[in-house]
């Protein structure tokens, strides 16, 4: 199989539809058992009661908000360096989903913070750097929208995306570097997770579901972008 064949919008367009269908199914395959475990298997938390069940969407949304940004910046950089249109289109397609995940991380965080910390919002390093991430996504989308020529918009927004990557490790390590109200990581690559195994399983299944969902909607969006940007090229109409 010639992989590079799919690096043109024309060939990627039909493939993206198939990828979207597969990943929507995968999102359900992880999401349904994830929610079942989250609500019907995982026990009540001895400190937070049932309020902790927000974790099953809060942590996946927060992880995806950071991960999508890195992937978006990667494709933006590839588009900038290799001048490949599809790469820039992928970056463009990821931004709204990344912004949505960031919004959900902040929103569910506020709804979790209120009953457990007694406040919806606090200007600590974790929350503030996550808010900056939302502004970076919105800035990326707005910058694109303000430039009429899509190829120039690709280049300008790529610079913004690449510079903004520095914020991602700041978010991730903020709970270590500064004294934050937000708790430290319960799950990391270097030590055993500090939570009950059913809670952890539910959370990981939901994280996989969010990941698969993000891929699926990004594929649908890249199709929309291709339809928009290639509408005058002729191949779409036949």
């Amino acid at each position: 199989m010639r992989f590079w064949k799919y690096s043109t919008p024309q060939n990627f367009y039909p493939a993206a539809k198939k990828i979207a269908a597969v990943f929507f199914v995968l999102a359900l395959c992880f999401g349904i058992p994830g929610l079942y475990i989250g609500f019907f298997v995982a026990p009540t938390d001895h400190q937070q009661g049932e309020a902790y069940r927000i974790i099953f969407i809060h942590v996946p949304a927060a992880w995806m908000s950071m991960f999508i940004y890195v992937v978006m910046a990667f494709w933006a950089a590839v588009g900038l360096i290799l001048n490949t249109r599809l790469s820039s289109m992928l970056a463009q397609a990821l931004a709204p989903t990344g912004a949505l995940m960031t919004f959900l991380a902040l929103w569910t965080g506020a709804f979790w913070g209120r009953p457990t910390w007694g406040t919806w919002w606090v200007w600590d390093a974790r929350l503030t750097s996550e808010l900056v991430l939302l502004f970076l996504y919105v800035g990326f989308i707005a910058l694109r929208a303000s430039i009429e020529d899509p190829r120039r918009a690709d280049k300008a927004s790529a610079i913004l995306a690449i510079v903004g990557v520095v914020n991602v490790p700041i978010i991730y390590f903020s709970v270590k570097w500064w004294n934050t109200l937000h708790q430290g990581a319960s799950v990391s690559l270097t030590k055993a997770p500090s939570m009950a195994s059913d809670m952890l399983l539910g959370m990981l299944l939901m994280a996989l579901s969010f990941w698969m969902y993000s891929i699926a909607v990004s594929m649908l969006r890249v199709r929309k972008i291709i339809r928009d940007r290639e509408r005058n090229s002729g191949w779409l109409n036949n």
């Binding site: 009661g49 049932e50 309020a51 959900l104 569910t108 009953p115």
Partner: peptide, 22 residues
């Protein structure tokens, strides 16, 4: 939800709504 219904469902319903819109 053990008294936390507003917070739990306030999180889940907004998430569901956002996904539906997208």
């Amino acid at each position: 939800m053990g008294g936390y219904g507003l917070y739990v469902w306030g999180s889940y319903l907004v998430t569901l709504f956002a996904i539906a819109i997208e």
